[in-house]
């Protein structure tokens, strides 16, 4: 039952966790913890959407970990509250090294604030609908729309700056 329902979505869970944490080892820990929770709350899976259900648990697991770690390291504010533009200016040498488009995109995505990053990942990489994303992130659909729009605007600017000739080809 559990294996049949949850394991097919393990890739989606890991991909999502990997983008949230930006780190392989941490993503593995998060997904493993999430699966333990999923097993525990398996009875709460009412509707048929096991993927959205598992991704929600992954998200909650990650957030409670971040909160716990933040508490331990003298209360650094959550990333979600920050909304400053990261310094993405690449110097010319870096630009040469980083010509590879995939790594440019990865880097641009990783530097987005997590609220923006997750809607992009869930929409573009996981292919979820606004409704599913809203359920996972626990926000109204309107918020999903505005986050997506702002995230894309930011990515567009960043990617055009980072590689003016190639990025938007």
């Amino acid at each position: 039952m559990f294996e049949q329902t949850v394991l097919p979505h393990l890739d989606a869970a890991f991909n999502y966790a990997r983008w949230l944490t930006r780190n392989d080892a941490e993503a593995e820990d998060v997904v493993q913890d999430a699966c333990v929770r999923a097993m525990r709350f398996f009875s709460s899976l009412r509707d048929d959407d096991a993927r959205a259900w598992l991704l929600t648990i992954v998200r909650n697991t990650w957030y409670s970990r971040v909160a716990r770690l933040a508490k331990m390291s003298a209360g650094k504010p959550l990333n979600e509250a920050q909304d400053h533009w990261p310094d993405l200016a690449l110097d010319p040498e870096e630009r040469l090294v980083q010509q590879h488009t995939v790594s440019l995109v990865r880097r641009a995505l990783e530097q987005l604030p997590v609220d923006f990053r997750e809607v992009i990942v869930l929409r573009e990489i996981e292919g979820l609908s606004y409704k599913e994303i809203a359920a996972i992130a626990g926000v109204p659909i309107g918020t999903v729309m505005s986050r997506l729009a702002r995230a894309r605007e930011r990515l567009q600017t960043v990617l055009t700056l980072a590689s003016p000739r190639e990025a938007l080809r």
Binding site: V6, L10, N15, D24, A27, Q32, L159
Partner: peptide, 25 residues
């Protein structure tokens, strides 16, 4: 942009994680 972003890496679950979750369950 959308086309570009869809080329971002997809991280599949490592086999050892799959194995661990299976053992766990």
């Amino acid at each position: 942009l959308t086309k570009l972003v869809r080329g971002a890496p997809y991280y599949p679950a490592p086999d050892r994680l799959r194995a661990r979750v299976l053992t766990q369950s």
